[in-house]
Write a protein that binds this DNA or RNA. Structure first.
Lengths: 200, 200
DNA sequence: GTCTATAAGTCGATAGAC
DNA sequence: GTCTATCGACTTATAGAC
């Protein structure tokens, strides 16, 4: 029986996960070191390994936490709702996720870029099943003439790409825009884009 | 005076650069090792370092070669051409780049994700200047009523995001689509998307 | 040009004192 | 729970034989 976590344990675990998110999201799994994470968490390396048994364990905990929240916005797409409004709302939720959780977005991007060795089976099963389900909903809307006829898979990919871009390529976006804030303009642009695309 | 490169030198340099592209594009600079690259190139590690003086040198050579080609498709956007046709052609060129040079796209994505430490000044100067110039062209088209009024910066970002997504997130796209080929559907989707968005 | 051997440093992880 | 010390493997790069 493990005892309930003390305040110190909770604080240190949270500090390690936040530090791990900082480092892993920037350098990927192999490019990150425990020294960096321990330093960012304000702990010694052996002390860090007292809380998580290995580098893998920290990374796995972060991916678990991420995947739980990552599919939610698409899950919430409601087949009973107004088609255009539902898709616009989905894009808006994903954009908010990029704005509020950019490190999580980059952690995911790094994992995919490296060939998704730790989550490929989840992508092939859970993600594929969810996308297939929602693509069928969107296809149904198109068949019923409620939205313009578009390939539902590429529509979903486009929402992923357009929203995650602002988190994953943040450095490039800021290099081009300078001081101007990206997300207000992005929200307006995406709203217009999908409104025009989807209106039958 | 260095002698002109022999056939063997050219072949080995090319093999090293191709192997480096394979590895760096997947694991990023820090996550890649010379052992991996030497192995992929079919050379011993000391022999690899006979051709390139350091790990950094291989990576720098790859980034140089990449950046030269990377801005070309936008450069070719012609202010004198037909507005909608020019933008559609740009998107098409970028999608072809993702299809034909996915490793280069992922090398760039890795560099940006890691904070662009080696190319940030290029982004802030050359890239920004080019985007500013072409954004002004697009803004002029919008002001003249030749295309719908859209934010030209977010329009350009959207083309980057939508095309590079198919190279950078290739694993995820294939996990969802299964056997179906991504690029034919993507081309049709993007053509319709930008046609509808830009038509005044 | 290509190899073996190795230097010099960093990596993840453990031992054991407190 | 947290520390210092350290192990053994790995990593970049060099030396020197062939």
């Amino acid at each position: 029986m493990t005892k309930p976590a003390t305040r110190i344990q909770k604080r240190n675990q949270a500090a390690i996960l936040s530090a791990g998110l900082d480092i892993f999201s920037q350098y990927g799994f192999r490019g990150s070191t425990l020294d960096q994470i321990a330093d960012a968490a304000g702990l010694s390396k052996p002390n860090l390994l007292y809380y998580f048994s290995s580098k893998e364990a920290i990374h796995a905990a972060l991916l678990d936490r991420l995947l739980a929240d990552w599919l939610d916005p698409l899950q919430a797409l409601d087949a009973q709702g107004d088609p255009v409004r539902e898709i616009l709302a989905y894009a808006k939720r994903k954009l908010a996720l990029s704005k509020d959780y950019p490190r999580e977005s980059r952690l995911f991007a790094n994992e995919i870029l490296q060939g998704a060795p730790r989550i490929e089976s989840i992508l092939r099963h859970d993600l594929k099943a969810l996308v297939d389900e929602k693509a069928a909903v969107i296809q149904g809307w198109a068949d019923a003439g409620k939205i313009a006829p578009v390939d539902p898979y590429h529509l979903i990919f486009s929402i992923w790409a357009l929203t995650q871009h602002y988190a994953d390529f943040d450095v490039q976006v800021r290099a081009v825009l300078g001081d101007r804030a990206p997300y207000d303009g992005a929200a307006v642009f995406l709203d217009m884009l999908y409104r025009k695309l989807l209106t039958p």
